[in-house]
Design a protein around this nucleic acid. Structure first.
Lengths: 202, 202
DNA sequence: CACATTACCGAATGTTCGGTCGGTTAACAA
DNA sequence: TTGTTAACCGACCGAACATTCGGTAATGTG
């Protein structure tokens, strides 16, 4: 829990392990519903000691949201196979997003609950909109090349797609016997080939 | 806004229109992030006047959650065509849930964000679990009769299904040019027949 | 051992929170 | 106009809130 080995001075928390505990609390009680007292109790620290590590509650939130956003944008920036169709690339982005969501579950969970009550939150919302926009572009290209059904608007498709992906944070727990890759496979299978489909046909 | 015509005494808010304003505020800033002062400002009332209509903030929440839950459970209790397959019934429940979600959007939105910080919230969570359980049963029966792909676990299917439906509250707005029935049709089409599918084949 | 460095704590700050209370104001009915 | 009913308000309360500050405790290093 306390992991700052190899440094000078009295040992104790580093920012990352502190952040981990804080984010867990934020996710359980909500950011506004979590007091610094509650964080202190979980950390086994006094309230005032937290301010030695971070400037305040809001910085904790900012660090968490930044981590989630970085991980998600990294998926979009993975350089695609130059020969791949937009449809294949879309499928890849969905698949990888599920993996990232699972790997950074608490941070992404917090990100998806932000409402815009402060500058930090509004910045995160802006970034999310940028992400959505880039996915919608990809869907549009996939629809144009005929890889995705034409009777549904690409923007709607994009929202359904990532609505489903994002909804995973509401129930998925990595220790529940369902592996990340199995989950990602099932999700892409259902979304791309349908619930009614016989074993896939790609 | 003030609608209590035909009664005796000084006119003013009734509980329903008050609730409507409160729930809108809760959805914008979060329940914990919304103070009674903020509610008073939106209502054009003083803080203390709110307590003339409801016992407190928590009753407001309880009324809203109850309304959402009643609407959702009513869908499950709609008596099915006795000849219908479980698959058809499942599709109907999904379709109707989208309609209810749209009709009671602010209340359902609030319901889906509850974290369990109080007795009222925990009761709502219990009810939601009951709802999920009844849907999962339906999926299991649909899978048993071969109407739904067998290579995905029914519980997972159920979660993906309602994950997608519930994610609508994050973006759907009834005034956005997309009608409820068009939305429900697109959603059921994508989920049951897949994103890749040519026009349906049921 | 002493020194620098880092981690931590108790007590207090001003502010905001949800909620209470006694009294006033506006409507309708008689 | 008077009585009844319901709606509303300003002032206030204790508790919880995030944050500050002066000081103390534990470590690695010389």
């Amino acid at each position: 829990m306390h992991r700052n080995a190899g440094r000078v001075g009295r040992p104790g928390y580093d920012r990352d392990s502190l952040l981990q505990v804080a984010v867990a609390a934020f996710n359980e009680r909500g950011y506004d519903g979590t007091g610094m007292e509650e964080l202190a109790k979980r950390l086994g620290l006094s309230k005032s000691s937290i301010y030695h590590h971070v400037s305040g509650k809001e910085e904790l939130l900012g660090l968490a949201l930044g981590r989630a956003l970085d991980a998600l944008f990294a998926v979009l920036d993975e350089l695609p196979d130059p020969d791949a169709t937009a449809t294949a690339r879309l499928e890849h982005v969905v698949h990888r997003s599920v993996e990232v969501l699972a790997a950074e579950l608490p941070y992404v969970t917090l990100l998806l609950r932000v409402r815009g009550n402060s500058a930090v939150e509004r910045h995160a919302l802006d970034k999310r909109r940028e992400f959505d926009h880039r996915v919608a572009e990809l869907v549009t290209r996939a629809a144009a090349e005929g890889g995705v059904r034409a009777d549904v608007d690409p923007h709607l498709t994009s929202r359904l797609l990532f609505g489903t992906v994002n909804s995973l944070v509401e129930w998925y727990r990595p220790d529940g016997g369902l592996t990340v890759s199995a989950l990602a496979d099932a999700l892409t299978a259902v979304l791309f080939d349908g619930l009614r489909a016989a074993p896939a046909r790609n």
